[in-house]
Simulated assay, not measured.
Amino acid sequence: MEPRSGPASRRHVPWNRLLLAVSLLTFWTPPTTAQLTIETMPPLAAEGSDVLLLAHNVAKNPLGYAWYRGERVDNSQLIGSYRVATNATTKGPAHSGRETLYPNGTLLIQSVTQEDTGFYTLLVTNDDLQTERPTGHLHVHPVLPIPVITSNNSKPWEHKDTVVLTCGPETQNTSYMWWISNQSLPKSTRLKLSEDKRTLTVVTVTRKEKGPYVCETRNPVSISRSDPFTLDVLYPVARPSLQVSNTTVPEHEGPVVLTCLTDETGVSIRWLFKGQSLLLADRMTLSSDNSTLTIDPVSREDAGAYQCEVSNRGNSSRSGPLG
């Protein structure tokens, strides 16, 4: 009798081993090489400072490096190259005299200017002759000068003139802020800022808006404030009045005190006698602010009409005559 034919025997694999194999295939991945990158340090570069373009994740045992201005490898834009085997650095046509290449691939740029703003490309040649070309960007910001406030009207009239204040100079990537009397600008329909906030318009100015004003400029690397600026707001001067201590005084006696009364501040006062500027005699004295005239003793030559005049930079006003 011939033996019964049948299927070949199969070796059974336990299910838990299959599960382990699948798990290993699922979670195991071949190691990857970290990507070569460039970091700018400091990230915000101020004009005149020193900046490093740091090369991260450089492969082991590279043959050499080369740095270029721009986003591509162009020999006319070569800053310099470094050969590891000889520890030799060769300067390129784009070298300004301020660049230094280090053996780890880092580039130092000293005393950067705004012209240094742009892209930089690093070419790394590895020991297998493969190359890597990461690109970084450097943005150099100017250190802002002290701003200056200018006005379109140096002597505006109250309730009449509109004043435009400008914070200068104008610089790119700069924000502007304003203060009045050491406070942020109040909400007012008569205070209007331009879109870039560099210009402040004061509509129909009053003495309340005379200031002082300060403007501030900011960019990513610096902050600067202007000197205070005060508007010389002109306004009509109210008519003063005269007060006298005694209108009838015997000759050679005294004193007689005349006082100029005014509610105005920041005004100057002068005295008139018979419509002309008063010439002070030895018997006459004025107070420090000229508001009081004392005559002692009195002479018949002093008889007549006295007036006082108050004035600011805009106009003046006289009292009625007394005497």
Rank of each mutant, 00 (worst) to 15 (best):
Arg318Gln: 14
Thr26Phe: 15
His139Gly: 00
Arg318Glu: 11
Glu301His: 14
Pro30Phe: 11
Ala34Ser: 12
Val233Phe: 08
Val148Glu: 13
Val256Gly: 07
Ile223Leu: 14
Gln243Asn: 14
Val298Gly: 08
Ser188Met: 07
Asn315Leu: 12
Thr262Val: 04
Leu258Glu: 03
Pro14Cys: 09
Val163Phe: 07
Pro220Tyr: 02
Ser291Thr: 09
Ile180Asp: 00
Ser224Pro: 01
Ser319Leu: 03
Gly168Tyr: 00
Val58Glu: 06
Glu115Asp: 11
Trp157Ser: 11
His159Ser: 13
Arg11Glu: 09
Ser288Asn: 12
Leu20Arg: 07
Arg83Glu: 12
Thr121Ser: 09
Arg300Cys: 08
Leu54Met: 13
Arg300Val: 14
Pro255Tyr: 06
Pro250Ser: 11
Glu309Tyr: 02
Lys274Pro: 01
Thr40Cys: 08
Gln114Asn: 03
Tyr176Val: 00
Asp127Gly: 06
Asp227Ile: 09
Ala21Cys: 11
Leu25Ile: 09
Pro62Asp: 03
Gly92Cys: 04
Ile180Lys: 01
Pro240Leu: 06
Arg83Tyr: 08
Leu191Arg: 01
Arg98His: 08
Ala281Tyr: 10
Asp289His: 05
Val249Lys: 08
Leu138Pro: 00
Ser319Cys: 02
Pro186Thr: 00
Gln110Ser: 14
Ile109Ala: 05
Ile149Gln: 05
Val221Ala: 06
Ser5Glu: 15
Arg225Thr: 15
Gly6Met: 08
Gly323Leu: 00
Val112Arg: 03
Ala281Val: 08
Gly211Gln: 06
Val257Pro: 06
Thr248Ser: 13
Arg300Tyr: 15
Pro250Gly: 09
Ser277Asn: 13
Thr121Lys: 07
Ala305Ile: 00
Thr248Ile: 10
Gly314Glu: 13
Trp179Lys: 14
Ser288Arg: 14
Pro3Asp: 15
Thr40Pro: 03
Asp116Gly: 04
Met177Cys: 04
Arg11Gln: 10
Ala8Pro: 11
Ile109Asn: 03
Asn57Thr: 02
Phe119Lys: 08
Arg83Ser: 11
Val112Gln: 01
Ser181Glu: 12
Pro228Ile: 08
Leu78Gly: 02
Val143Tyr: 03
Val148Ala: 10
Asn219Tyr: 02
Ala303Lys: 12
Tyr68Phe: 14
Ala34Arg: 09
Val84Leu: 09
Pro169His: 02
Trp179Pro: 03
Gly323Lys: 03
His139Leu: 09
Asp282Gly: 12
Asn152Ser: 15
Lys155Gln: 15
Ala66Phe: 04
Ala305Trp: 06
Lys155Asp: 13
Gly168Thr: 01
Gln307Pro: 01
Tyr82Trp: 12
Thr32Leu: 09
Gly6Val: 06
Val249Gly: 04
Cys167Pro: 04
Thr29Arg: 14
Cys167Tyr: 02
Ala85Pro: 00
Ser81Gln: 12
Trp178Met: 03
